[in-house]
Design a protein around this nucleic acid. Structure first.
Lengths: 250, 250
DNA sequence: CGGCTTCTTGATCTCGATCAATCAGCGTGG
DNA sequence: CCACGCTGATTGATCGAGATCAAGAAGCCG
Protein backbone atom coordinates (compact mmCIF):
# COMPACT_ATOMS: atom_id res chain seq x y z
CA UNK A 1 0.00 0.00 0.00
CA UNK A 2 1.30 3.45 -0.76
CA UNK A 3 2.71 4.96 2.36
CA UNK A 4 0.62 8.08 2.21
CA UNK A 5 -2.45 5.88 2.62
CA UNK A 6 -1.36 4.93 6.07
CA UNK A 7 0.55 8.01 7.10
CA UNK A 8 -2.28 10.40 6.69
CA UNK A 9 -3.89 10.84 10.05
CA UNK A 10 -7.45 11.99 9.71
CA UNK A 11 -7.52 15.60 10.67
CA UNK A 12 -10.71 16.69 12.29
CA UNK A 13 -12.61 17.81 9.25
CA UNK A 14 -11.87 14.55 7.48
CA UNK A 15 -13.57 12.74 10.27
CA UNK A 16 -16.97 13.44 8.81
CA UNK A 17 -18.48 11.59 5.88
CA UNK A 18 -19.44 14.83 4.19
CA UNK A 19 -15.82 15.81 3.72
CA UNK A 20 -14.24 12.37 3.59
CA UNK A 21 -12.38 11.81 0.35
CA UNK A 22 -13.70 8.27 0.24
CA UNK A 23 -17.37 9.16 0.38
CA UNK A 24 -17.83 8.45 -3.32
CA UNK A 25 -16.69 4.84 -2.80
CA UNK A 26 -18.00 4.16 0.66
CA UNK A 27 -21.34 3.12 2.04
CA UNK A 28 -23.04 6.54 2.01
CA UNK A 29 -22.14 7.02 -1.63
CA UNK A 30 -25.72 7.36 -2.77
CA UNK A 31 -26.98 9.64 -0.03
CA UNK A 32 -28.22 13.19 -0.22
CA UNK A 33 -26.42 15.66 1.99
CA UNK A 34 -29.17 15.69 4.55
CA UNK A 35 -29.32 11.92 4.73
CA UNK A 36 -25.58 11.78 5.02
CA UNK A 37 -25.87 13.81 8.20
CA UNK A 38 -28.04 11.11 9.68
CA UNK A 39 -25.61 8.47 8.60
CA UNK A 40 -22.66 10.43 9.88
CA UNK A 41 -24.36 10.71 13.25
CA UNK A 42 -24.24 6.98 13.94
CA UNK A 43 -20.56 6.54 13.03
CA UNK A 44 -18.08 6.04 15.82
CA UNK A 45 -14.53 7.18 15.26
CA UNK A 46 -11.81 4.94 16.54
CA UNK A 47 -8.23 5.34 17.56
CA UNK A 48 -5.92 4.16 14.79
CA UNK A 49 -4.84 0.54 14.91
CA UNK A 50 -1.16 -0.23 14.91
CA UNK A 51 0.34 -2.86 12.66
CA UNK A 52 -0.63 -6.31 13.90
CA UNK A 53 -3.42 -5.05 16.15
CA UNK A 54 -6.80 -6.76 15.76
CA UNK A 55 -9.90 -4.76 14.91
CA UNK A 56 -11.80 -7.66 16.40
CA UNK A 57 -11.12 -11.32 17.02
CA UNK A 58 -12.79 -14.43 15.76
CA UNK A 59 -15.90 -15.43 17.72
CA UNK A 60 -16.32 -12.06 19.39
CA UNK A 61 -19.93 -10.92 19.44
CA UNK A 62 -20.95 -9.12 16.29
CA UNK A 63 -21.98 -5.56 16.97
CA UNK A 64 -20.69 -3.37 14.19
CA UNK A 65 -19.45 -3.27 10.67
CA UNK A 66 -16.44 -1.10 9.88
CA UNK A 67 -15.45 1.05 6.95
CA UNK A 68 -11.73 1.30 6.33
CA UNK A 69 -10.61 4.91 6.27
CA UNK A 70 -6.88 4.45 5.76
CA UNK A 71 -4.42 1.60 5.88
CA UNK A 72 -5.32 -2.03 5.30
CA UNK A 73 -6.34 -5.21 7.11
CA UNK A 74 -6.54 -8.94 6.65
CA UNK A 75 -9.25 -11.33 7.72
CA UNK A 76 -8.06 -14.65 9.13
CA UNK A 77 -10.20 -17.62 10.08
CA UNK A 78 -8.78 -20.27 12.35
CA UNK A 79 -10.32 -23.70 12.37
CA UNK A 80 -8.99 -26.71 14.16
CA UNK A 81 -5.45 -26.34 15.40
CA UNK A 82 -3.14 -23.76 13.95
CA UNK A 83 -4.45 -23.98 10.43
CA UNK A 84 -5.35 -20.45 9.43
CA UNK A 85 -7.06 -19.31 6.31
CA UNK A 86 -6.67 -15.74 5.14
CA UNK A 87 -9.96 -14.98 3.45
CA UNK A 88 -9.72 -11.33 2.56
CA UNK A 89 -7.71 -8.14 2.44
CA UNK A 90 -9.48 -4.84 3.08
CA UNK A 91 -8.51 -1.47 1.62
CA UNK A 92 -9.87 2.04 2.28
CA UNK A 93 -13.61 2.47 1.67
CA UNK A 94 -14.24 -1.25 1.97
CA UNK A 95 -16.68 -2.70 4.48
CA UNK A 96 -15.48 -5.16 7.11
CA UNK A 97 -17.58 -7.55 9.16
CA UNK A 98 -20.65 -8.10 7.00
CA UNK A 99 -20.22 -11.85 7.27
CA UNK A 100 -20.86 -11.67 11.00
CA UNK A 101 -24.50 -10.59 10.78
CA UNK A 102 -25.68 -14.14 10.66
CA UNK A 103 -24.78 -16.12 13.80
CA UNK A 104 -23.99 -12.90 15.69
CA UNK A 105 -20.27 -13.63 15.86
CA UNK A 106 -17.40 -12.59 13.68
CA UNK A 107 -16.27 -15.62 11.68
CA UNK A 108 -12.65 -14.51 11.66
CA UNK A 109 -10.17 -12.12 13.20
CA UNK A 110 -9.45 -8.91 11.33
CA UNK A 111 -5.94 -7.58 11.80
CA UNK A 112 -4.26 -4.36 10.72
CA UNK A 113 -1.41 -4.83 8.24
CA UNK A 114 -0.11 -1.31 8.91
CA UNK A 115 -1.31 1.71 10.84
CA UNK A 116 -5.00 1.74 10.03
CA UNK A 117 -8.04 3.85 10.83
CA UNK A 118 -11.62 2.70 10.53
CA UNK A 119 -15.11 4.07 11.05
CA UNK A 120 -17.25 1.92 13.29
CA UNK A 121 -20.88 1.57 12.27
CA UNK A 122 -23.04 -0.09 14.94
CA UNK A 123 -25.17 -2.54 13.04
CA UNK A 124 -28.42 -2.04 14.93
CA UNK A 125 -28.28 1.67 14.17
CA UNK A 126 -27.35 0.97 10.57
CA UNK A 127 -30.28 -1.40 10.22
CA UNK A 128 -32.68 1.20 11.59
CA UNK A 129 -31.32 3.79 9.26
CA UNK A 130 -31.61 1.35 6.37
CA UNK A 131 -35.32 1.34 7.08
CA UNK A 132 -35.62 5.06 6.53
CA UNK A 133 -33.13 5.54 3.73
CA UNK A 134 -33.79 3.37 0.68
CA UNK A 135 -30.54 4.50 -0.92
CA UNK A 136 -28.55 3.39 2.07
CA UNK A 137 -30.36 0.08 2.19
CA UNK A 138 -29.74 -0.44 -1.47
CA UNK A 139 -26.05 0.32 -1.08
CA UNK A 140 -25.81 -2.12 1.77
CA UNK A 141 -27.39 -4.87 -0.31
CA UNK A 142 -25.03 -4.00 -3.12
CA UNK A 143 -21.99 -4.20 -0.92
CA UNK A 144 -22.95 -7.62 0.32
CA UNK A 145 -23.83 -8.79 -3.15
CA UNK A 146 -20.49 -7.58 -4.45
CA UNK A 147 -18.65 -9.39 -1.72
CA UNK A 148 -20.45 -12.60 -2.66
CA UNK A 149 -19.53 -12.06 -6.25
CA UNK A 150 -15.89 -11.49 -5.34
CA UNK A 151 -15.95 -14.63 -3.22
CA UNK A 152 -17.11 -16.64 -6.20
CA UNK A 153 -14.31 -15.21 -8.28
CA UNK A 154 -11.93 -16.29 -5.57
CA UNK A 155 -13.31 -19.82 -5.59
CA UNK A 156 -12.75 -19.94 -9.29
CA UNK A 157 -9.20 -18.76 -8.80
CA UNK A 158 -8.54 -21.36 -6.12
CA UNK A 159 -10.01 -24.29 -7.95
CA UNK A 160 -9.05 -23.60 -11.56
CA UNK A 161 -6.01 -21.39 -11.78
CA UNK A 162 -2.33 -22.24 -11.77
CA UNK A 163 0.06 -20.60 -9.35
CA UNK A 164 1.20 -18.15 -12.04
CA UNK A 165 -2.36 -17.18 -12.89
CA UNK A 166 -3.16 -16.67 -9.22
CA UNK A 167 -0.24 -14.33 -8.67
CA UNK A 168 -1.02 -12.42 -11.84
CA UNK A 169 -4.70 -12.10 -10.89
CA UNK A 170 -3.77 -10.98 -7.43
CA UNK A 171 -1.53 -8.20 -8.70
CA UNK A 172 -4.14 -7.08 -11.23
CA UNK A 173 -6.88 -6.97 -8.62
CA UNK A 174 -4.73 -4.94 -6.28
CA UNK A 175 -3.75 -2.60 -9.10
CA UNK A 176 -7.39 -2.12 -9.94
CA UNK A 177 -8.39 -1.36 -6.40
CA UNK A 178 -5.63 1.23 -6.12
CA UNK A 179 -6.66 2.83 -9.37
CA UNK A 180 -10.22 3.25 -8.23
CA UNK A 181 -9.00 4.89 -5.06
CA UNK A 182 -6.97 7.40 -7.01
CA UNK A 183 -3.53 5.88 -6.52
CA UNK A 184 -1.12 4.68 -9.13
CA UNK A 185 -2.19 1.31 -10.52
CA UNK A 186 1.37 0.57 -11.59
CA UNK A 187 3.41 1.39 -8.57
CA UNK A 188 2.45 0.43 -5.06
CA UNK A 189 3.58 -1.11 -1.83
CA UNK A 190 2.31 -4.46 -0.57
CA UNK A 191 1.23 -4.13 3.02
CA UNK A 192 1.08 -7.91 3.43
CA UNK A 193 3.91 -10.41 3.75
CA UNK A 194 4.68 -13.14 1.24
CA UNK A 195 3.25 -15.58 3.75
CA UNK A 196 -0.04 -13.66 3.77
CA UNK A 197 -0.17 -13.68 0.00
CA UNK A 198 0.55 -17.40 -0.10
CA UNK A 199 -2.05 -18.13 2.52
CA UNK A 200 -4.64 -16.07 0.65
CA UNK A 201 -3.88 -17.59 -2.75
CA UNK A 202 -3.52 -21.15 -1.51
CA UNK A 203 0.20 -21.33 -2.33
CA UNK A 204 3.35 -22.01 -0.34
CA UNK A 205 5.46 -18.97 0.54
CA UNK A 206 8.27 -20.38 -1.55
CA UNK A 207 6.02 -20.54 -4.59
CA UNK A 208 4.97 -16.91 -4.19
CA UNK A 209 8.58 -15.86 -3.95
CA UNK A 210 9.64 -17.95 -6.94
CA UNK A 211 6.87 -16.64 -9.15
CA UNK A 212 7.59 -13.02 -8.28
CA UNK A 213 11.23 -13.65 -9.17
CA UNK A 214 10.21 -15.21 -12.46
CA UNK A 215 7.82 -12.37 -13.31
CA UNK A 216 10.70 -10.05 -12.57
CA UNK A 217 13.07 -11.89 -14.89
CA UNK A 218 10.43 -11.69 -17.61
CA UNK A 219 10.21 -7.92 -17.07
CA UNK A 220 6.52 -8.13 -16.24
CA UNK A 221 7.04 -6.51 -12.86
CA UNK A 222 9.86 -5.03 -10.86
CA UNK A 223 9.76 -6.12 -7.24
CA UNK A 224 11.94 -4.90 -4.46
CA UNK A 225 10.87 -6.17 -1.10
CA UNK A 226 7.27 -5.07 -0.81
CA UNK A 227 7.56 -2.39 -3.45
CA UNK A 228 5.90 -3.41 -6.71
CA UNK A 229 6.13 -1.84 -10.16
CA UNK A 230 4.02 -3.27 -12.91
CA UNK A 231 6.00 -2.97 -16.14
CA UNK A 232 3.79 -4.93 -18.51
CA UNK A 233 0.16 -4.82 -17.60
CA UNK A 234 -0.74 -6.45 -20.91
CA UNK A 235 1.54 -9.39 -20.26
CA UNK A 236 0.19 -9.65 -16.73
CA UNK A 237 -3.39 -9.80 -17.94
CA UNK A 238 -2.39 -12.42 -20.47
CA UNK A 239 -0.74 -14.45 -17.72
CA UNK A 240 -3.85 -14.26 -15.57
CA UNK A 241 -6.21 -15.38 -18.30
CA UNK A 242 -4.08 -17.97 -20.05
CA UNK A 243 -6.26 -20.91 -20.94
CA UNK A 244 -6.00 -23.61 -18.32
CA UNK A 245 -6.23 -26.90 -20.22
CA UNK A 246 -9.34 -28.73 -18.99
CA UNK A 247 -11.25 -29.77 -15.94
CA UNK A 248 -14.42 -31.58 -15.07
CA UNK A 249 -17.53 -30.09 -16.62
CA UNK A 250 -20.97 -31.44 -17.13
CA UNK B 1 -66.12 -14.50 -12.83
CA UNK B 2 -65.35 -16.87 -9.99
CA UNK B 3 -62.09 -16.24 -8.33
CA UNK B 4 -60.58 -19.61 -8.94
CA UNK B 5 -61.00 -19.22 -12.69
CA UNK B 6 -59.38 -15.84 -12.98
CA UNK B 7 -56.38 -16.77 -10.85
CA UNK B 8 -53.42 -18.25 -12.66
CA UNK B 9 -52.20 -19.68 -9.40
CA UNK B 10 -51.60 -23.38 -9.11
CA UNK B 11 -54.41 -24.65 -6.97
CA UNK B 12 -52.09 -26.54 -4.66
CA UNK B 13 -52.60 -25.27 -1.17
CA UNK B 14 -48.87 -25.61 -0.70
CA UNK B 15 -48.46 -22.64 -3.00
CA UNK B 16 -48.84 -20.22 -0.14
CA UNK B 17 -46.13 -19.38 2.34
CA UNK B 18 -48.53 -19.79 5.24
CA UNK B 19 -48.96 -23.47 4.55
CA UNK B 20 -45.60 -24.22 2.97
CA UNK B 21 -43.68 -26.86 4.85
CA UNK B 22 -40.49 -24.90 4.29
CA UNK B 23 -41.66 -21.68 5.87
CA UNK B 24 -39.60 -22.30 8.99
CA UNK B 25 -36.40 -22.38 6.93
CA UNK B 26 -37.23 -19.92 4.21
CA UNK B 27 -37.05 -16.16 3.96
CA UNK B 28 -40.32 -15.37 5.78
CA UNK B 29 -39.28 -17.50 8.74
CA UNK B 30 -39.46 -14.65 11.22
CA UNK B 31 -42.71 -13.10 10.08
CA UNK B 32 -46.00 -12.80 11.89
CA UNK B 33 -48.97 -14.29 10.12
CA UNK B 34 -50.22 -10.93 8.98
CA UNK B 35 -46.84 -9.89 7.62
CA UNK B 36 -46.53 -13.19 5.89
CA UNK B 37 -49.66 -12.33 3.94
CA UNK B 38 -47.91 -9.27 2.60
CA UNK B 39 -44.88 -11.26 1.73
CA UNK B 40 -46.94 -13.96 0.13
CA UNK B 41 -48.62 -11.36 -2.03
CA UNK B 42 -45.46 -10.43 -3.90
CA UNK B 43 -44.39 -14.00 -4.66
CA UNK B 44 -44.81 -15.27 -8.20
CA UNK B 45 -45.35 -18.96 -8.68
CA UNK B 46 -43.56 -20.55 -11.57
CA UNK B 47 -44.03 -23.58 -13.74
CA UNK B 48 -41.70 -26.37 -12.61
CA UNK B 49 -38.33 -26.53 -14.32
CA UNK B 50 -37.34 -29.75 -15.97
CA UNK B 51 -33.93 -31.29 -15.47
CA UNK B 52 -31.32 -29.25 -17.29
CA UNK B 53 -33.56 -26.22 -17.73
CA UNK B 54 -32.09 -22.88 -16.67
CA UNK B 55 -33.86 -20.73 -14.10
CA UNK B 56 -31.93 -17.87 -15.62
CA UNK B 57 -28.75 -17.50 -17.61
CA UNK B 58 -25.53 -15.71 -16.88
CA UNK B 59 -25.62 -11.98 -17.73
CA UNK B 60 -29.41 -11.78 -17.89
CA UNK B 61 -30.77 -8.70 -16.18
CA UNK B 62 -31.30 -9.17 -12.49
CA UNK B 63 -34.93 -8.78 -11.50
CA UNK B 64 -35.76 -11.37 -8.88
CA UNK B 65 -34.40 -13.68 -6.30
CA UNK B 66 -35.83 -17.16 -6.04
CA UNK B 67 -36.59 -19.50 -3.20
CA UNK B 68 -36.28 -23.18 -4.01
CA UNK B 69 -39.48 -25.03 -3.21
CA UNK B 70 -38.56 -28.52 -4.35
CA UNK B 71 -35.78 -30.12 -6.35
CA UNK B 72 -32.29 -28.68 -6.68
CA UNK B 73 -30.15 -26.46 -8.88
CA UNK B 74 -26.55 -25.62 -9.63
CA UNK B 75 -24.99 -22.26 -10.32
CA UNK B 76 -22.39 -22.17 -13.07
CA UNK B 77 -20.20 -19.25 -14.04
CA UNK B 78 -18.52 -19.25 -17.44
CA UNK B 79 -15.51 -17.09 -17.99
CA UNK B 80 -13.31 -17.07 -21.02
CA UNK B 81 -13.82 -20.01 -23.33
CA UNK B 82 -15.46 -23.18 -22.14
CA UNK B 83 -14.04 -23.04 -18.65
CA UNK B 84 -16.96 -23.32 -16.28
CA UNK B 85 -16.94 -23.02 -12.56
CA UNK B 86 -19.73 -24.53 -10.52
CA UNK B 87 -20.05 -22.20 -7.54
CA UNK B 88 -23.05 -23.53 -5.68
CA UNK B 89 -25.77 -26.09 -5.29
CA UNK B 90 -29.19 -24.97 -4.08
CA UNK B 91 -31.65 -27.09 -2.09
CA UNK B 92 -35.24 -26.39 -0.99
CA UNK B 93 -35.71 -23.23 1.10
CA UNK B 94 -32.44 -21.73 -0.12
CA UNK B 95 -32.30 -18.36 -1.81
CA UNK B 96 -30.95 -18.07 -5.36
CA UNK B 97 -29.72 -14.96 -7.12
CA UNK B 98 -28.61 -12.72 -4.26
CA UNK B 99 -25.23 -12.21 -5.90
CA UNK B 100 -26.90 -10.44 -8.81
CA UNK B 101 -28.10 -7.39 -6.86
CA UNK B 102 -24.88 -5.57 -7.46
CA UNK B 103 -24.20 -4.96 -11.16
CA UNK B 104 -27.82 -5.76 -12.02
CA UNK B 105 -26.92 -8.96 -13.83
CA UNK B 106 -26.80 -12.55 -12.73
CA UNK B 107 -23.16 -13.57 -12.43
CA UNK B 108 -23.86 -17.15 -13.45
CA UNK B 109 -26.46 -19.46 -14.93
CA UNK B 110 -28.62 -21.42 -12.55
CA UNK B 111 -29.75 -24.78 -13.86
CA UNK B 112 -32.16 -27.38 -12.51
CA UNK B 113 -30.55 -30.70 -11.60
CA UNK B 114 -33.94 -32.43 -11.55
CA UNK B 115 -37.56 -31.37 -11.75
CA UNK B 116 -37.58 -28.26 -9.64
CA UNK B 117 -40.07 -25.67 -8.48
CA UNK B 118 -39.20 -22.21 -7.23
CA UNK B 119 -40.93 -19.14 -5.88
CA UNK B 120 -39.98 -15.97 -7.71
CA UNK B 121 -39.57 -12.89 -5.53
CA UNK B 122 -39.24 -9.67 -7.54
CA UNK B 123 -36.43 -7.79 -5.89
CA UNK B 124 -37.87 -4.30 -6.09
CA UNK B 125 -40.98 -5.50 -4.27
CA UNK B 126 -38.87 -7.38 -1.76
CA UNK B 127 -36.79 -4.29 -1.12
CA UNK B 128 -39.91 -2.20 -0.51
CA UNK B 129 -41.27 -4.80 1.85
CA UNK B 130 -37.94 -4.94 3.63
CA UNK B 131 -38.50 -1.29 4.45
CA UNK B 132 -41.74 -2.03 6.26
CA UNK B 133 -40.88 -5.33 7.86
CA UNK B 134 -37.77 -5.25 10.03
CA UNK B 135 -37.92 -8.99 10.53
CA UNK B 136 -37.89 -9.60 6.82
CA UNK B 137 -35.03 -7.19 6.34
CA UNK B 138 -33.09 -8.82 9.07
CA UNK B 139 -33.65 -12.25 7.58
CA UNK B 140 -32.49 -11.02 4.20
CA UNK B 141 -29.29 -9.63 5.70
CA UNK B 142 -28.82 -12.90 7.50
CA UNK B 143 -29.24 -14.94 4.36
CA UNK B 144 -26.64 -12.91 2.54
CA UNK B 145 -24.31 -12.96 5.49
CA UNK B 146 -24.66 -16.73 5.73
CA UNK B 147 -23.87 -17.13 2.07
CA UNK B 148 -20.71 -15.08 2.52
CA UNK B 149 -19.75 -17.23 5.44
CA UNK B 150 -20.33 -20.39 3.44
CA UNK B 151 -18.26 -18.97 0.62
CA UNK B 152 -15.36 -18.44 2.98
CA UNK B 153 -15.65 -22.00 4.19
CA UNK B 154 -15.52 -23.08 0.58
CA UNK B 155 -12.38 -21.03 -0.04
CA UNK B 156 -10.80 -22.74 2.88
CA UNK B 157 -11.79 -26.10 1.50
CA UNK B 158 -10.38 -25.28 -1.91
CA UNK B 159 -7.10 -23.88 -0.74
CA UNK B 160 -6.26 -26.09 2.23
CA UNK B 161 -7.97 -29.45 2.01
CA UNK B 162 -6.91 -32.66 0.32
CA UNK B 163 -9.16 -34.43 -2.14
CA UNK B 164 -10.30 -36.87 0.54
CA UNK B 165 -11.13 -34.08 2.95
CA UNK B 166 -13.07 -32.26 0.26
CA UNK B 167 -15.21 -35.26 -0.57
CA UNK B 168 -15.82 -36.00 3.09
CA UNK B 169 -16.75 -32.36 3.78
CA UNK B 170 -19.05 -32.34 0.79
CA UNK B 171 -20.94 -35.41 1.97
CA UNK B 172 -21.19 -34.07 5.50
CA UNK B 173 -22.51 -30.71 4.32
CA UNK B 174 -25.11 -32.39 2.16
CA UNK B 175 -26.10 -34.70 4.97
CA UNK B 176 -26.51 -31.73 7.25
CA UNK B 177 -28.65 -29.82 4.81
CA UNK B 178 -30.89 -32.84 4.36
CA UNK B 179 -31.21 -33.30 8.08
CA UNK B 180 -32.33 -29.73 8.59
CA UNK B 181 -34.94 -30.20 5.91
CA UNK B 182 -36.35 -33.22 7.64
CA UNK B 183 -34.84 -35.87 5.41
CA UNK B 184 -32.57 -38.70 6.40
CA UNK B 185 -29.04 -37.43 6.91
CA UNK B 186 -27.68 -40.91 6.24
CA UNK B 187 -29.40 -41.97 3.10
CA UNK B 188 -29.98 -39.72 0.14
CA UNK B 189 -29.72 -39.35 -3.58
CA UNK B 190 -27.23 -37.07 -5.27
CA UNK B 191 -28.98 -34.96 -7.84
CA UNK B 192 -25.68 -33.90 -9.39
CA UNK B 193 -23.30 -35.87 -11.59
CA UNK B 194 -19.76 -36.83 -10.60
CA UNK B 195 -18.58 -34.18 -13.04
CA UNK B 196 -20.61 -31.55 -11.18
CA UNK B 197 -19.15 -32.64 -7.87
CA UNK B 198 -15.64 -32.55 -9.31
CA UNK B 199 -16.16 -29.14 -10.80
CA UNK B 200 -17.53 -27.82 -7.52
CA UNK B 201 -14.77 -29.30 -5.38
CA UNK B 202 -11.95 -28.47 -7.76
CA UNK B 203 -11.21 -32.13 -8.52
CA UNK B 204 -11.09 -34.25 -11.64
CA UNK B 205 -14.05 -36.57 -12.22
CA UNK B 206 -11.72 -39.53 -11.93
CA UNK B 207 -10.61 -38.39 -8.51
CA UNK B 208 -14.18 -38.07 -7.29
CA UNK B 209 -14.94 -41.54 -8.51
CA UNK B 210 -11.81 -43.04 -7.01
CA UNK B 211 -12.39 -41.48 -3.62
CA UNK B 212 -15.98 -42.64 -3.48
CA UNK B 213 -14.79 -46.14 -4.31
CA UNK B 214 -12.18 -45.97 -1.60
CA UNK B 215 -14.63 -44.64 0.99
CA UNK B 216 -16.83 -47.54 0.01
CA UNK B 217 -14.06 -50.07 0.52
CA UNK B 218 -13.42 -48.60 3.93
CA UNK B 219 -17.10 -49.01 4.77
CA UNK B 220 -17.50 -45.31 5.42
CA UNK B 221 -20.25 -45.02 2.83
CA UNK B 222 -22.17 -47.27 0.49
CA UNK B 223 -22.56 -45.78 -2.94
CA UNK B 224 -24.60 -47.13 -5.77
CA UNK B 225 -24.82 -44.76 -8.68
CA UNK B 226 -26.21 -41.61 -7.19
CA UNK B 227 -27.61 -43.31 -4.13
CA UNK B 228 -25.55 -42.63 -1.03
CA UNK B 229 -25.63 -44.30 2.38
CA UNK B 230 -23.43 -42.94 5.08
CA UNK B 231 -22.32 -45.88 7.22
CA UNK B 232 -19.77 -44.22 9.45
CA UNK B 233 -20.51 -40.59 10.11
CA UNK B 234 -17.79 -40.50 12.77
CA UNK B 235 -15.18 -41.77 10.37
CA UNK B 236 -16.38 -39.31 7.75
CA UNK B 237 -16.07 -36.38 10.11
CA UNK B 238 -12.59 -37.55 11.06
CA UNK B 239 -11.65 -37.75 7.39
CA UNK B 240 -12.89 -34.23 6.78
CA UNK B 241 -10.99 -32.71 9.67
CA UNK B 242 -7.79 -34.69 9.54
CA UNK B 243 -4.92 -32.33 10.20
CA UNK B 244 -3.41 -31.16 6.95
CA UNK B 245 0.35 -30.84 7.59
CA UNK B 246 1.26 -27.17 7.14
CA UNK B 247 0.91 -24.20 4.87
CA UNK B 248 1.95 -20.59 4.74
CA UNK B 249 0.91 -18.59 7.74
CA UNK B 250 2.00 -15.27 9.09
C1' DC C 1 26.83 -5.68 16.05
C1' DG C 2 23.73 -10.11 17.13
C1' DG C 3 19.34 -12.15 17.20
C1' DC C 4 15.15 -12.02 15.03
C1' DT C 5 11.87 -12.64 11.15
C1' DT C 6 11.11 -12.49 6.26
C1' DC C 7 12.53 -13.63 1.78
C1' DT C 8 14.95 -16.22 -1.77
C1' DT C 9 16.79 -20.20 -4.13
C1' DG C 10 17.80 -25.13 -4.83
C1' DA C 11 16.66 -30.30 -4.60
C1' DT C 12 13.34 -33.75 -4.00
C1' DC C 13 8.86 -35.86 -3.44
C1' DT C 14 3.84 -36.40 -3.73
C1' DC C 15 -0.98 -35.77 -4.68
C1' DG C 16 -4.02 -35.44 -7.92
C1' DA C 17 -4.40 -34.28 -13.07
C1' DT C 18 -4.19 -36.32 -17.34
C1' DC C 19 -4.32 -40.00 -20.67
C1' DA C 20 -6.43 -44.28 -21.86
C1' DA C 21 -9.50 -48.06 -21.77
C1' DT C 22 -13.55 -50.38 -20.30
C1' DC C 23 -17.99 -50.68 -18.40
C1' DA C 24 -22.77 -49.51 -17.12
C1' DG C 25 -27.20 -47.13 -18.03
C1' DC C 26 -30.60 -45.64 -20.91
C1' DG C 27 -33.31 -43.85 -24.30
C1' DT C 28 -34.29 -44.36 -29.51
C1' DG C 29 -35.48 -46.37 -33.47
C1' DG C 30 -35.53 -50.43 -36.50
C1' DC D 1 -37.13 -57.03 -28.43
C1' DC D 2 -32.41 -56.10 -29.19
C1' DA D 3 -28.61 -53.39 -31.45
C1' DC D 4 -26.78 -49.06 -31.45
C1' DG D 5 -24.98 -44.89 -29.81
C1' DC D 6 -24.29 -41.67 -26.30
C1' DT D 7 -23.28 -40.03 -21.86
C1' DG D 8 -21.70 -40.98 -17.26
C1' DA D 9 -18.87 -43.73 -14.14
C1' DT D 10 -15.03 -46.61 -12.91
C1' DT D 11 -10.26 -48.21 -12.84
C1' DG D 12 -5.36 -48.34 -14.19
C1' DA D 13 -0.84 -46.10 -15.61
C1' DT D 14 1.90 -42.10 -16.06
C1' DC D 15 3.33 -37.35 -15.36
C1' DG D 16 3.94 -32.75 -13.64
C1' DA D 17 2.91 -28.51 -10.84
C1' DG D 18 3.66 -27.15 -6.70
C1' DA D 19 4.50 -28.63 -1.69
C1' DT D 20 7.97 -29.76 1.34
C1' DC D 21 12.64 -29.94 3.05
C1' DA D 22 16.90 -27.53 3.49
C1' DA D 23 20.05 -23.78 3.56
C1' DG D 24 21.37 -19.10 2.87
C1' DA D 25 20.65 -14.10 2.22
C1' DA D 26 18.65 -9.90 3.41
C1' DG D 27 16.20 -6.80 6.23
C1' DC D 28 15.03 -4.88 10.65
C1' DC D 29 15.25 -3.39 15.25
C1' DG D 30 17.14 -3.80 20.03
Amino acid sequence: MPDHLSRRRPSLHEARCQTCSLSSLCLPLALELEDMDHFDAIIRRRAPLKKGEPLFRQDETFTSVFAVRSGSLKQVTTEGSGNDQLTNFYLPSELVGLDGIDEEHYPGSVIALETTTVCEIPFDRLDMLAEELPDLRSQLFRSMSKEMRDDRRMMRLLSRKTADQRMASFLITLSDRFRRRGYSPFSFRLSMSRADIGNYLGLAVETVSRILSRFQNQDVVAVSGREVNILGMQRLVALAEEETPEVASS
